[in-house]
Design a protein around this nucleic acid. Structure first.
Length: 294
DNA sequence: GACACGTGGGC
DNA sequence: TGCCCAAGTGT
């Protein structure tokens, strides 16, 4: 995409966002930085629809980092419910503790300080700095990567991992103005989430269809390396999930017989129990009994 | 850089 | 009906 086209891309996407943005509780001027941060951790690899109720309950119970920091990690894991990847709940709790210890209880505003928090990587640090504090950052999530791959690079999907070239493209189309850049970040994400979707993009409803490189090239099929799915049946992940579901549903502690009923295969069951303990998701309260960490 | 890490909805 | 995918991070 030549540089002369970039302003048209900005105008079309920003105008579209102005008309089509979803009203989400972590968006808008009323949302606190903490609300934004909680949403970002929850949204990692997790659809918006499933995050909404948990985010609301979480903010009601722990409206500040300090409130969460005073709570046990086990309560955080229980509150996390069925969002998946429960280690994120531990990381969010640890981040709250760090925010109290290092930042006087306020979500830090700089990318570097955010990046230093548990559970916050490049994407999340950029997203919080951009969405909560209006800063200018390249925010490269799966939606933005797909939108840029198609509109600018002319391919259906981006590479497996973020490449230098890809980051250069994202930087080259980032608006210069700080506030505009922040809106651009959320707008391109929204476009990827609602229109330029992975499986069936709605090109008819796309504001940048007429300047999309992928469309202009006739929608060439993806020719990169196979994108392997995640194994599930019979894996440790499934076993861990079963055990954690049991622990969440049980007010006190779970016993060996319950765990065995949930996962009969002994060797794998023991390995997963040990792994969950090592991760801090479970503690052994007495021999043969486990509970969420108190 | 590859892999582990949960869960459930949509096509 | 399975397979693919969803605002990634840590090791």
């Amino acid at each position: 995409m030549d540089a002369a086209t970039v302003p048209a891309l900005h105008d079309a996407v920003l105008r579209w966002y102005d008309d089509h943005a979803r009203e989400l509780p972590w968006r808008g001027t009323a949302a606190s930085p903490w609300s934004v941060m909680v949403s970002e951790l929850m949204l990692q690899q997790t659809p918006v629809a499933r995050v909404l109720p948990v985010h609301a309950a979480w903010l009601e119970r722990w409206p500040t980092p300090a409130a969460l920091a005073e709570e046990s990690t086990g309560e955080a894991v229980r509150m996390w419910g069925r969002l998946g990847y429960p280690r994120r709940a531990l990381r969010l709790h640890a981040a709250a503790v760090a925010i109290v210890a290092r930042h006087d209880g306020e979500v830090p505003t700089s990318y570097d300080d955010l990046l230093a928090l548990p559970g916050v990587g490049d994407y999340t640090a950029s997203a919080i700095a951009s969405f909560a504090f209006g800063q200018r950052h390249v925010v490269l999530d799966t939606n933005v990567r797909r939108v840029l791959a198609r509109t600018v690079s002319g391919v259906e999907f981006p590479a497996t991992a973020v490449t230098r070239a890809e980051r250069d493209v994202a930087t080259s189309v980032l608006p210069d103005d700080e506030a505009t850049a922040a809106t651009w970040a959320v707008a391109t994400m929204e476009l990827g989430a609602l229109v330029c979707t992975a499986r069936q993009p709605s090109c008819d409803a796309c504001p940048v269809a007429d300047l999309c490189a992928w469309r202009g090239a006739g929608f060439p099929a993806y020719d990169g390396p196979p994108r392997r799915g995640q194994a599930w049946a019979g894996t440790d992940r499934q076993c861990r999930g079963r055990i954690m579901a049991l622990a969440r549903e049980t007010a006190s502690s779970i016993g060996a017989a319950q765990v065995e009923a949930a996962w009969p295969q002994a060797e794998q069951r023991e390995r997963c129990l040990a792994g969950l303990e090592a991760d801090g998701l479970l503690t052994q309260v007495t021999p043969g009994r486990w509970a969420l960490p108190g």
